[in-house]
């Protein structure tokens, strides 16, 4: 029976073809440094899942953001665990994506034919930093508020367009409800959508081109 169900599905979904191209393929023998990419992906999934749970209770307004986070920490069952994982997962994700980039650099894996994989990877690093920056403001506590005040001042010092960028980031001259709403929207919709797209391209290329082998002397 199970076999008949499988055959029925396979005929329509092409499961065997997926298995053959994605899973059942030969790759060069590599070391543990090659797990950094999948670790980054895993951390992204963890961040996405815990983040979705956090949005259930989080309220992105200056009047309620802090209280809603307090409620998550003290009132919601296991809310402290979800937020704790999200908090530490953010740090780990930045760390792992960065080390993944270093591994790719030192093994020369960005060279032909993997240039586009590298490009998407750099954008993934930048969007990950963007996630860190926008997520930092959301608890709306002192640390968040003042770090973001300084953080949005930094692009503000750019010549000519600096103050324009600063106003765009803040949605006004000062940090306000608008800033929080913007950072929230960027943190939970815009950047994740971009990251998902980049991950899809990145992984398609990794599967299509295969992982690079560890360079030998003279290569």
């Amino acid at each position: 029976m199970a076999e008949r169900v499988f055959t029925w599905l396979d005929e329509r979904l092409g499961l065997t073809a997926i298995y053959n191209t994605v899973l059942d393929r030969k790759v060069p023998k590599v070391n543990w440094w090659y797990t950094l990419g999948s670790a980054s992906l895993f951390l992204f999934v963890i961040q996405a899942v815990t983040g979705m749970f956090l949005t259930v209770y989080y309220v992105p307004s200056p009047d309620h953001a802090y209280d809603s986070v307090q409620y998550i920490m003290n009132g919601v069952a296991f809310g402290w665990l979800i937020r704790g994982i999200h908090h530490w997962g953010a740090s780990l994700m930045v760390l792992f994506v960065f080390i993944h980039m270093l591994r790719t650099f030192f093994f020369g894996a960005y060279k032909y034919p993997r240039e586009v994989t590298w490009l998407t990877g750099v954008f993934l690093l930048l969007t990950t930093l963007g996630m860190g920056f926008t997520g930092y403001l959301l608890p709306w506590n002192q640390r968040a508020y003042w770090a973001t005040t300084v953080g949005t001042e930094i692009p503000g010092t750019a010549p000519f367009i600096g103050s324009f960028i600063e106003r765009i980031l803040r949605g006004g001259t000062d940090l306000s409800a608008v800033t929080l709403a913007r950072f929230f929207a960027v943190h939970i919709w815009f950047l994740p959508a971009i990251i998902l797209l980049l991950i899809a391209v990145h992984m398609y290329l990794v599967i299509r081109l295969g992982i690079s082998n560890i360079p030998k002397e003279g290569e």
Binding site: A90, S91, V94, L129, F133, Y136, R143, W146, A147, G151
Partner: peptide, 9 residues
Amino acid sequence: YIPRPEWYF
């Protein structure tokens, strides 16, 4: 308040 960015910044 002394502003402190996240450690990776």
